[in-house]
């Protein structure tokens, strides 16, 4: 039985926080109502959680080859995951995935697609009300 140092305990805490972020992101992926909310929940928290796992592995193993590789993997993850999530959300908007009926604003649809893609009347009513407020 090897002895556990303070640095090991810090690394375990960082890994545990990352795993909790992963689990909460996956729960949000199941529970949220439409595609954009699911992307919003899952991508950010899962990226940060997996980056936390990699940093925790670096802290636990020190600057060994395994730790350096884990750091490189985390940096690649931070570079690539937001880009792929942005491409996915843009593709699903142009594909025509419907927004949740409580959505308030759709700036990309108003600029590029000639009108908001929101389905319900509630959101449009709120937006027109804002417009009237601006005019007044």
């Amino acid at each position: 039985m090897t002895e556990v140092t303070v640095i090991d305990v810090i690394g375990y805490i960082v890994i545990f926080v990352g795993v909790v972020f992963d689990l909460l992101g996956a729960i949000g992926l199941v529970r949220f109502p439409d595609v954009y909310n699911r992307l919003q929940s899952a991508t950010k928290s899962v990226t940060l959680g997996t980056f936390g796992i990699m940093i925790g592995i670096l802290i636990v193993t020190g600057f060994t080859p395994l730790g350096i590789k884990a750091l490189i993997c985390g940096v690649f993850l931070l570079l690539t995951a937001p880009v792929s999530a942005h491409a996915l959300s843009r593709g699903s908007l142009r594909f025509g995935a419907k927004m949740w009926k409580g959505t308030v604003i759709d700036a990309y649809g108003k600029d590029k697609l000639g009108g908001p893609q929101i389905e319900s009347e509630e959101g449009e009513a709120k937006e027109s009300k804002e417009k009237e407020d601006e005019v007044a």
Partner: peptide, 8 residues
């Protein structure tokens, strides 16, 4: 998301 989880 499942691909990123498999990395971890």
């Amino acid at each position: 998301i499942m691909g990123i989880l498999f990395v971890g």
